[in-house]
Amino acid sequence: MSAKTADKIATGVIVFITGLIALALLGLLGYILFRGLGHISWHFLTSPPETIRKGGGIGPQLFNSLFLLVLTMIITVPLGIGAGIYMSEYAKAGKITSAIRLVVEVLSSFPSIIVGLFGLLVIVNKFNLGFSLLSGALALTIFNLPLMVRITEQGLRSVPVQQKEASLALGISKWKTIRSVQLPIALPIVLSGSILAAGRIFGEAAALLFTAGMSSPRLDFSDWNPLHNDSPLNPLRPAETLAVHIWKVNSEGLAPDATQIAAGASAVLIITVLLFNLGARALGRYMHNRFTASK
């Protein structure tokens, strides 16, 4: 076989396989949307699930997922940005800093189930927060912090050093320089990274099984006092999220329409993650344009 023929065959194989991957993704998306969209209705999105009867919805789970996302971001963002600033601006090059880097890398490679188990042991039991939204949010925070740190570092590294020097030369403190000069320039990267992280949080289940719990008590959607037990806003109540619900319905669902529910919920999950993805892209592009094409 001549080299030219081999080249043609190899090219063909590569194109074929790449096409196969694209087809697989389209098939995957198509399948979920095809199976799931038919099941999505206003009723499905808003009503509580049924254990053994048909017609259950995912209302509380959807709410839990969104609420948990907000809670997690409220905790993660200030911590992650702070730690990212430390790594990028305050840490001096040396043994200790590279040790911290190693630690962050290890944390980012821990399986999420391990994070969930740690949450069960320390947050749920030792801190006595029980299976609750707060426990889940803390576990997800641990799960997401390394990513947030990396995003912040990346964002700050993209800021031209001349900007920092200009501010410092005016006699402005380092901390003020970071907050008022460097962070605003890093913002597009930090924001679009955070949105992608949010998508990851929204779909995460393994870290939540043993922290936010697998049950959803009846919620009274007319009571918005976070201190009341039935209130949806109570952060100390157990809360099954959408992703956990999909897992539970699949592995131990008793309702006759379990598969449809899983399909519908998967479709909702996928659409949300897609929106996060598109949102991050659009925001990144918009911010980029605003800062560079201001002429």
Binding site: L25, L28, I32, G203, I246, S266
Partner: peptide, 12 residues
């Protein structure tokens, strides 16, 4: 997008 799909959806 493949990276963004949640693991439970892959499982499903």
């Amino acid at each position: 997008l493949l990276a963004g799909i949640p693991s439970v959806v892959y499982g499903f």
